[in-house]
């Protein structure tokens, strides 16, 4: 499990300030959904968190230490497809486990488990070039879950999926989170998705991005999207984004 601390994070691209002095904490085992207007810098924030971008100032700490990708067990599901086209679906899923030196037995078991979870067992020997967009994203999701990360970062991972699979994977993510208490930071622009899954919701402003509001989502799990309390929470988040 990981506790994440973000202190005064600022990031600009040339003269364009994208992240403006963002500070917050994510407790061990928390499930934080970050929502905000399109293009507000949500992805930049996650990329900065995992050091894909250098930040201008501020710091990001995991369990009180600077982020070290070899030391901290982080998995990041990106918005773009990040499957390796020269590896089969099975090999893609096993990639992270092999890097992290899981035992052969565990690799085999875990591969079966996560492929079943995302409904890709039949396509285990296919190459990414033979798959559809939604299948590619399912492979990335399976690969991230396979490494049993302490911190799971997800950048609009379900955006490309059909509704049925999306609902299934949302429930699956909640189940895994409840079971493993993995700390999750989930970026989405789908407000219903954020309210359905999260324990905490953070709403960002438009550029330069600041934290507009950060609050707990007290609704008990499992949630029902038609319940009055759910609709109220969804409206609250909608209004925060609508009237930024």
């Amino acid at each position: 499990m990981s506790k994440v601390e973000v202190n005064h994070l600022t990031k600009s691209f040339g003269k364009l300030k994208v992240l403006d002095d963002i500070s917050f904490q994510v407790e061990d085992g928390d499930f934080l959904c970050i929502v905000g207007p399109t293009g507000c810098g949500k992805t930049t924030f996650l990329n900065s968190l995992v050091k894909l971008y250098d930040v201008d100032c501020g710091e990001i700490l995991i369990n009180g230490e600077a982020v070290d990708l070899n030391k901290h067990s982080i998995a990041y599901i990106m918005q773009e497809y990040s499957t390796m086209s020269w590896l089969t679906v099975r090999e893609n899923v096993q990639f992270g486990m092999k890097i992290r030196k899981f035992s052969k037995k565990k690799i085999k078991e875990k591969t079966q488990e996560v492929l079943r979870m995302v409904g890709m067992e039949k396509f285990a020997d296919y190459y990414p070039g033979q798959l559809s967009a939604s299948m590619l994203q399912r492979v990335s999701i399976a690969r991230a879950f396979a490494v049993e990360p302490d911190l799971l970062l997800m950048d609009e991972p379900y955006g490309q999926l059909d509704l049925e699979l999306r609902f299934k994977l949302e429930d699956e993510l909640i189940r895994i989170w409840q079971e493993t208490k993995t700390t999750i930071i989930f970026i989405t622009h789908n407000i219903e998705e954020a309210v359905y899954m999260s324990r905490r919701i953070m709403v960002l402003t438009n550029k330069p991005t600041k934290v507009k509001e950060d609050f707990e989502n007290p609704l008990p799990l499992p949630r029902n999207v038609t319940e009055e309390s759910f609709v109220e929470m969804r409206n609250r988040v909608t209004n925060l984004i609508k009237w930024w």
Partner: peptide, 16 residues
């Protein structure tokens, strides 16, 4: 760069 980024996230070192 998305692939190298994804590999980094999974703990791959520069040589890997």
């Amino acid at each position: 760069p998305i692939l190298t980024g994804a590999a980094k996230m999974l703990g791959a070192r520069p040589i890997q």
